[in-house]
Amino acid sequence: MISYIIRRLIMLIPVLIGMSIITFSVVHAIPGDPARTIVGDKATPAQIQEIRENLGLDKPAYIQYFTYVKDILQGDLGTSLITKQEISKEIKPFLAATTELAVVAMLIAVFFGVNLGILSAWKQNSWFDYTAMLIALIGVSMPIFWLGLMEQWFFAQELDLLPSNGRLDPRMEFDAITNFYSIDAIIQGNWYAFQDVLLHLILPAVALGTIPMAIIARMTRSSMLEVMRSDYIRTARAKGLGEFWVIYKHTLKNAFIPVLTVVGLQLGLLLGGAVLTETIFSWPGVGRYIFDAINARNYPVIQSGILILATIFVLINLIVDLLYAWVDPRIQYGKGE
């Protein structure tokens, strides 16, 4: 197992190198000049030239690349061209904001997805089943940014029931310690803040969690149907165990791996992919951070940001794979893939 982990980690290296090269080339091929963004519209060519020299942007691309790799190897993710802040520091709250959102979205997805799936299978071919599966189908087909907009329009604007943007009422006295606001609120024992954080999470998390929820519901349903047909259940039933709970338990076990796969995959994707949800709900997350950096030609932020996200993505995949083995010892890791 340990040798497997090590091998997987080693395999990560060429992927990261490849990514850094692609990111670097794409980013530097984007027309436009970060120097212009820094000094503004009214800068003279001389001013721009000076800044380019200060930033090392006048050097040939390959030298810039090697400088960048050298810095990364020394653990230096670089400095934002625009804010002059260290990226490793600056990115933390953004990462935390998106992670918190993604985790809550997944919790919603798993909770509702699994239960919907089980109940629909239990009541197979009933109106409940049809409704639930229709919802699930629509759920997978929904452009989430549109869903977000509609939520915002209906729940925040028309009903004024839930906050439409941000992570917390700015009037609240609150210290961001870990930058996971729900955890921070608990640490500070501030229950109003905790409640407010949850309220702010609902709309974006539901938008973000809809697709995984739909996928999970459909998977759980088919997995449950299989369980219900199996001999094992018949035996259990014969033994007189409470039927629903037997099936519930077994389905949960059976559904675990596919659900885990969805969660793992989506969690990794959501980190960088929540940019639309973040845009709509003014969520100060990492997707928006990198998106803004692309618009401002903020090279180091784009490069390091994408590198961080990719590393996290790959690590999550690794963890998911390891969890498989832990859950289902039949799965063995020896050969390549």
Binding site: L271, G273, G287, I302, L309, A310
Partner: peptide, 9 residues
């Protein structure tokens, strides 16, 4: 790659 960010880039 975060696919949407790659597409944006």
């Amino acid at each position: 790659f975060p696919s949407i960010l790659l597409a944006i880039a």
